[in-house]
């Protein structure tokens, strides 16, 4: 345990924790809008395109982070344009970029004379090798993403919810669509150091999937996803650091698996809550055709009888073996 605390005191570990916090906040913020637009795989597509960006950086000996930002933004805008023109299926457009980006990246890395291990840092993350300069870039980009996602949330929500309505409300649809694409591209490159380009989409989508099991409104989904994303990325990092004394545990995959574990826990809870909510929703008040009395009833319905009580107008119906029993004087009516 004291080894673990010593490890936390090391500068590279502290930088990694800061990077994890900011990435965990920013990625699900963008991810919420992507999921709302039913583009959950968009982050993945951009991630693959960014591989080419990283390789370009390695080839030209410039910072792979910045070349990845530029190439990812271009790729995201391209996906958006193909989607807007609409003739190619959005899925197909994504697939084309997936393969092009990944193949181009691996080819360019080879041309640059770099080993696969160097590229692996970007594919699967290498949060503990983050330099002070990298941390500042991650902090600034993540802060911009969070500010835009929260500050412009009414506009982004309206555009993602219903494009036609938003356009008649006078919003510039194309601007907001491209904005979301650019935000997604930037958050991909921000999360590149933490979980890696191939797993980046997980940090954008999994916390959103988890939080929407339990939420009913958009704002609470967004907020909960950001909290869950931070918990997962910091928790996964600490877990991998703790386990590293026993085995080689990579932080990137650990973060993703922690996030997935959160979903596995939340999913049955969500299913249970939703079915409870459905069972207890009041029955609609409709004029009753006939007064149907139940002859004999084995027990009195009440608070603790074990049958689900559902509000029905001015009284309560008890759901009993597929029937609805309503108390009426000394007997029960069939409702």
């Amino acid at each position: 345990m004291s080894d673990f605390l010593d490890l936390l005191g090391l500068p590279f570990m502290q930088r990694a924790i800061i990077a994890a916090v900011f990435t965990g906040l920013a990625a699900p913020a963008v991810g919420t809008y992507l999921v709302q637009r039913r583009q959950a795989l968009m982050g993945d597509g951009i991630g693959h395109v960014a591989v080419t960006g990283v390789a370009l950086g390695l080839l030209t000996n410039s910072s792979p982070t910045w070349t990845a930002v530029v190439v990812a933004v271009l790729g995201a805008v391209l996906i958006e344009v193909i989607r807007e023109r609409g003739h190619t299926n959005g899925d197909v457009a994504l697939a084309l970029l997936f393969y092009g980006g990944l193949a181009g990246g691996v080819l360019l890395t080879g041309l640059a004379g770099q080993s696969a291990a160097r590229l692996n840092q970007y594919l699967f993350g290498a949060i503990t090798t983050t330099s002070p300069g990298d941390v500042i870039v991650v902090m600034v980009l993540a802060a911009v993403i969070v500010l835009v996602c929260v500050g412009l949330s009414p506009q982004l929500f309206a555009v993602a919810q219903d494009q036609e309505f938003a356009r008649v409300a006078g919003l510039n649809i194309r601007f907001y669509n491209v904005l979301v694409a650019v935000l997604a591209a930037v958050s991909v490159t921000v999360a590149m150091r933490t979980v890696g380009l191939l797993l980046v989409s997980a940090l954008m989508v999994v916390p959103v999937a988890t939080s929407q099991q339990l939420t009913r409104s958009f704002r609470s989904t967004l907020g909960a996803a950001m909290v869950l994303g931070t918990l997962a990325s910091v928790g996964g990092l600490l877990l991998s650091a703790y386990a590293s004394t026993y085995a080689r545990v990579a932080p990137g995959p650990t973060i993703v698996l922690v996030a997935l574990a959160g979903f596995v826990v939340a999913w049955p809870v969500g299913v249970l809550l939703r079915s409870r909510h459905r069972l207890r929703r009041p029955f609609p008040v409709v004029e009753v055709a006939a007064h149907e009395v139940i002859d004999e009833h084995p027990h009195d319905h009440g608070k603790d009888c074990g049958h689900v009580a559902v509000q029905h107008g001015d009284h309560v119906d008890y759901v009993h073996g597929g029937h609805r029993h309503a108390p009426h004087g000394r007997h029960y009516d069939e409702h």
Binding site: T32, F157, A158, Q161, D162, A166, V168, A169, S217, F218
Partner: peptide
């Protein structure tokens, strides 16, 4: 004001009734 032809008002992320109506205030 525009009310589009629509089967429903649902999207990929849950949204409350209040939030959808509030987006009409954007103008």
């Amino acid at each position: 004001g525009f009310v589009p032809q629509r089967g429903g008002a649902a999207s990929g992320v849950p949204a409350s009734v209040w939030e959808i109506v509030a987006s009409g205030r954007l103008t």
